[in-house]
Amino acid sequence: MRVETKLFLYLFVFFVPVTLIYGFWSKWSEPIGVTALVLTALLFALSGFYLWMTGKKLPLRPEDNASGEIEDAEGNYGYFVASSWTPLWLAGSGAIMFAGLAVGWWLFIIGAFFGVVAVCLWVFESFHGEYSI
């Protein structure tokens, strides 16, 4: 994941001097831009650091190999539920809750009730019973 790490860390290195230039140019009198630039730099640092940490844990991937073949990348990519309606229930509950913010708290509470049920259904969908992962 060296390429991905570099992609983010180069931008971090770029935004640190940009922040300083911006700060000195505006005589540190304009706080919004400075805050935004500092946090932009930190955002790239966070993503870059994470990719670097992950890259250290993983062996070299097929896409890191310049002479790699497509079929090198086959295999298990993670666990995905074959079919699930629970995200739809949760989205519906969320829609009712947000409508409740505009309409009235009574509707929000009804939506929150459905939301609790939907979250539990989703969280435990693959984590209960005979075929839990």
Binding site: S29, E30, P31, I32, V34, T35, A36, L39, T40, L42, L43, L46, S47, Y50, T54, Y77, G78
Partner: peptide
């Protein structure tokens, strides 16, 4: 997969709080 998705989402959360910090510093100035 789950871990990568979480980090991507947390990056967007960081920008959400960045907005709140910007509001704070603007009003303070």
């Amino acid at each position: 997969m789950v871990a990568v998705g979480t980090i991507v989402w947390l990056s967007s959360e960081l920008m959400f709080f960045a907005g709140l910090f910007a509001v704070y510093f603007q009003l303070r100035s």
